[in-house]
């Protein structure tokens, strides 16, 4: 065997190892899910009946949607804290549109919500990409601005299910082949985003930007443009989530989605997306959202006081990032070892 092929095989071995660690990450969430679901199901077999599984997915789907948008942003080493406010603004405006103009076609109304979200995302993206300021601060600012606009427009009003068209409310409750439509929409968004991140050049470039922004610039990647795109997409998805929020809950006031941003970031981090960019998948993030949502439901079923829920979610997030870190350290050691032998 020549030295060159030896290096090559060792290189692929290292790559295989890092791939395996990546896969272990998503597997870990699935195992955690099983660890939560199985004991609950043993205690209360009704927990795994189709209806309750459907509710589980339905409850997780809005956070999972937001987590997909957030993943795109976080992968590029940014963060979008304004998603909760964007969802709230979009939800209220969509509901108001349907209530004030009863003739609004279903898709046009939802499209309106999506456009509201897109506009918010565009503003975030322009400020981050052109203003060249940290996304954490920008989106913390727009978190306040969007929520304030939401309250100012709502003037304390609330849109009730009675004022919404049946077609919209049906969307929140009906199902196809036993699967709620909301869940199907979420799965489609996850699939599109996953394929985009995995197989498209501009999707791969997002990881490159997150791994090393300077190197990405030097490699000719249009960093500002890609960053702008991720914020627009995150806003767009938050807008869609807002419209779906209306369909799901029926009653909307200006407070919809308050504080959701931290849940979303938690789901993304639990799902294995590195907060400093460069790695993670939308499937992982969506699984993270599902896991956090499932824990909430299990606590209810197990009759553990709901007060424990937040503490457990926090502990879970901490253990997820700790395990990630330890795995990464081991991986780095293993890679160093293969490199060391190849030079020998």
């Amino acid at each position: 065997m020549t030295a060159a092929t030896a290096v090559a095989t060792r290189g692929t071995a290292a790559r295989r190892l890092s791939n395996r660690v990546g896969r272990v990450r998503e597997l870990g969430i699935v195992v955690a899910l099983a660890l939560v679901v199985i004991p609950t199901a043993i205690v209360n077999p009704r927990f795994i009946q189709p209806q309750s599984l459907r509710d589980l997915l339905l409850n997780a789907s809005i956070v999972a949607l937001l987590a997909v948008g957030q993943t795109l942003v976080v992968v590029t080493r940014n963060v979008d804290l304004s998603v909760g406010s964007v969802l709230g603004l979009s939800a209220f405006l969509t509901a108001q549109q349907f209530a004030d103009h009863p003739g609004t076609p279903l898709l046009a109304g939802i499209g309106f919500g999506v456009v509201v979200g897109l506009a918010c995302g565009l503003l975030n993206g322009l400020l981050v990409a052109l203003g060249n300021v940290p996304s954490l601060v920008v989106t913390l600012g727009t978190l306040y601005v969007f929520r304030g606009i939401d309250y100012a427009l709502a003037q304390g009003r609330q849109v009730n299910a009675a004022n919404l068209p049946d077609a919209l409310l049906d969307l929140g409750s009906s199902r196809i082949l036993g699967i709620p439509i909301l869940v199907l929409v979420t799965v489609v968004v996850i699939a599109v985003a996953a394929v985009y991140l995995r197989s498209y050049r501009s999707g791969r470039e997002l990881y490159a930007i997150g791994s090393n922004p300077e190197a990405a610039t030097l490699a000719g990647i249009p960093v500002a443009k890609r960053t702008l795109t991720t914020f627009v997409l995150s806003g767009l998805i938050a807008g869609l989530a807002g419209a779906l929020w209306v369909a799901r809950y029926g009653t909307v006031d200006a407070a919809a989605g308050t504080g959701l941003e931290l849940q979303v970031v938690a789901a993304v981090v639990v799902g294995g997306v590195a907060i400093f960019g460069g790695s993670g998948t939308v499937a992982g993030a969506a699984l993270g959202a599902l896991l956090l949502g499932t824990i909430t439901s299990c606590l209810v079923v197990l009759q553990i006081p709901a007060f424990w829920q937040q503490a457990i979610a926090g502990a879970l997030l901490l253990s997820a990032i700790t395990v990630d870190r330890l795995l990464a350290l081991r991986l780095a050691k293993a890679l160093r070892k293969t490199e060391g032998t190849s030079h020998a």
Binding site: L262, V265, A266, V269, Q310, A313, G314
Partner: peptide, 13 residues
């Protein structure tokens, strides 16, 4: 950022 989002939930919990 990640640690204190975790402890934000943990301590409040």
């Amino acid at each position: 950022l990640a640690v204190t989002i975790g402890t934000l939930a943990l301590y409040r919990g």
